[in-house]
């Protein structure tokens, strides 16, 4: 097996195995026989054309759509099966622009039981601010969610998904709406997570340029895994050229 770099914060002793995932809609197969081996401290990026089943795979791993196959989370050191905690960063929120929810309201709704419609708890406020500050988003706490830019919203969602820090973080990257600085900052945050925490990450990405720069492992998906490996290997493969043509950057999926 190829030698892969592992984040400094990871113990390297946890592994997550996706075994034989398949998803069907009626008689059509959306995903077939997906087998993944994911290590903590590693950023695995899923790429593929539109409709290749990238988001479907994420939804199946979240247990939100019916699928065949299992996920196993193993502690190699103690050879024990553990309960897998999954964090999720969605592509977008299902809200109107004028939804009267502040970042505090949104955050507290996911991590606290004190009703946000009744009052703002000082303790929770402090906690939310602390978590946001990990991702350079502490100044957004009183802003209205609908007013955030794509990049700001992504940072807030990232900190919600990481409170508490999960074993596996699933990220569905927005197709558009985030500027270059936002994307850079996002990947910086991912690197920070890799450095400081013991977690595995799977990112559905639409930006191949950044994939090449930041991914540890790349999976090229087209209903099933048609190629996987280190970024340079996958991005120079025949299968990759068949899916994307020869251009790496002029593509949005």
């Amino acid at each position: 097996m190829e030698k892969l770099k592992i984040g400094a914060g990871a113990c390297g002793f946890h592994c997550i195995k996706v075994k034989d995932f398949s998803v069907r809609a009626g008689t059509t197969m959306l995903l077939e026989h997906i087998n993944l081996h994911i290590h903590c401290g590693r950023l695995t990026v899923i790429i593929g054309r539109n409709g290749a089943g990238k988001s479907t795979l994420i939804k199946a791993m979240l247990g939100e759509i019916r699928h065949e196959g299992t996920i196993e989370f193993r502690d190699i050191k103690q050879n024990a099966i553990r309960r897998l905690q999954i964090g999720y960063v969605p592509q977008y929120l299902n809200i109107d622009k004028n939804t009267p929810a502040s970042v505090y309201d949104m955050f507290a709704a996911y991590i606290s039981k004190i009703p946000v419609c009744l009052y703002q708890s000082k303790r929770v406020y402090k906690q939310v601010k602390e978590r946001l500050s990990l991702f350079a988003a502490q100044d957004l706490i009183d802003r209205q969610v609908g007013d955030l830019s794509g990049g700001e919203l992504q940072r807030v969602l990232l900190s919600i998904a990481c409170t508490p820090v999960p074993n596996l973080l699933l990220l569905d990257e927005p197709v558009s709406g985030i500027d270059r600085n936002g994307i850079e900052l996002f990947y910086k945050n991912i690197e920070m997570l890799k450095r400081n925490y013991d977690l595995a990450m799977i990112l559905v990405s639409h930006d191949l340029e950044f994939v090449e720069k930041y991914a540890d492992y790349v999976i090229l998906l087209d209903k099933t895994i048609i190629r996987e490996g280190t970024p340079d290997k996958v991005l120079s493969s025949r299968e990759f050229k068949e899916v994307f043509g020869s251009s790496k950057t002029a593509w949005v999926g």
Binding site: E64, Y88, A101, A109, Y110, L157, A161
Partner: peptide, 11 residues
């Protein structure tokens, strides 16, 4: 409120 913002995230 959590469910109204994003169902997958809430789940």
């Amino acid at each position: 409120e959590a469910a109204s913002l994003n169902i997958s995230l809430a789940k």
